[in-house]
């Protein structure tokens, strides 16, 4: 092991403290009986029970999860096709343009993506009558558009790292190209597709700005609901909600970590 200087070690310590102190403080506050953050009113779980009685929160959560699952699935299908096209189909007409267009939604500021999609939906409605109402379908389309870029990049880099002669070998042994995609390519890029799906799912659950643009009356996603509450200041039931999410994510990561280590060991 090479020596790390004191400077590097203190940067690491400061950096991780910076990343984690806010999260820890939210968890602590969530158990504060007082509704004022300044006062410690004693330990209590009342914000949690209040949260679970709040049907508004539960409705918004349900809508958000529905959108996230649908858009992540669509994004994984489209993104995988795009990744395959970029990594395996050689040169085709418009490839450079295609690859530029794939990665652009990732770097586009959310306000621009949101505004542009809303204007598209309004124009489409004028021309075709669809979408009659903005909500689940428009938010799902918007989320699919920007998260398919992430899936495409993840799948593409996995394919680039993968030995192309695996697919050639399958073809050499009599597998027709479409068959080979299902026999060889998809099973081998499955981890990348799962990672892409999870990322798309998180991005969708996380999005506030784009959803605010393209949603209509009556469709409030969880981030939109949270935002309308915290705009007015600290709100104790949001502390409880944040703590639940932190706990769920940490648990998921720990489980994934253990699973990965166990998988890595035998070989």
């Amino acid at each position: 092991m090479r020596r790390r200087s004191r400077f590097i070690l203190s940067a690491l310590a400061f950096g991780y403290a910076f990343l984690y102190i806010p999260l820890i403080s939210v968890v602590i506050y969530s158990f504060n009986d007082s509704s004022l953050s300044a006062v410690w009113g004693g330990f209590s779980t009342r914000w949690y029970s209040e949260l679970f009685r709040n049907t508004q929160v539960l409705d918004a959560l349900f809508l958000s999860v529905k959108i996230a699952v649908t858009s992540a699935t669509l994004a994984t299908i489209l993104g995988t096709m795009a990744g395959l096209a970029l990594a395996r189909f050689g040169r085709f007409k418009g490839r450079t343009f295609f690859s530029g267009m794939i990665s652009s939604p990732m770097v586009m500021p959310e306000v621009i993506t949101g505004l542009s999609l809303l204007l598209l939906f309004v124009t489409l409605q004028q021309l075709t009558g669809w979408p009659g109402q903005r909500g689940f379908s428009t938010i799902t389309i918007a989320h699919t558009t920007f998260s398919m870029a992430y899936v495409a990049i993840i799948v593409q880099s996995r394919l680039v790292a993968m030995d192309e002669s695996l697919e050639e070998a399958a073809m050499d042994l009599g597998g027709r190209p479409l068959r080979v995609v299902f026999d060889i390519t998809l099973p081998l890029i499955a981890p990348a597709m799962i990672a892409g799906w999870l990322l798309a799912f998180t991005l969708s659950l996380d999005d506030l700005v784009i959803a605010s643009f393209v949603s209509g009356p009556g469709s409030t996603t969880l981030p939109m609901l949270i935002f309308s509450k915290v705009k007015l200041g600290v709100s104790p039931d949001i502390n409880a909600l944040a703590s639940i999410i932190i706990a769920a994510v940490s648990l998921g990561v720990v489980v994934a970590w253990i699973a990965m280590r166990r998988n890595a060991k035998p070989s």
Binding site: P22, L23, V26, L205, D206, V230, V234, V249, G252, V253
Partner: peptide, 21 residues
């Protein structure tokens, strides 16, 4: 992993955490 982990927790809630601090 510890660098990536906050990324999986809602962005909005992480900003909100700073409001409390």
């Amino acid at each position: 992993l510890l660098v990536v982990l906050p990324f999986w927790i809602s962005f909005l809630l992480r900003v909100y955490a700073w409001m409390g601090l």
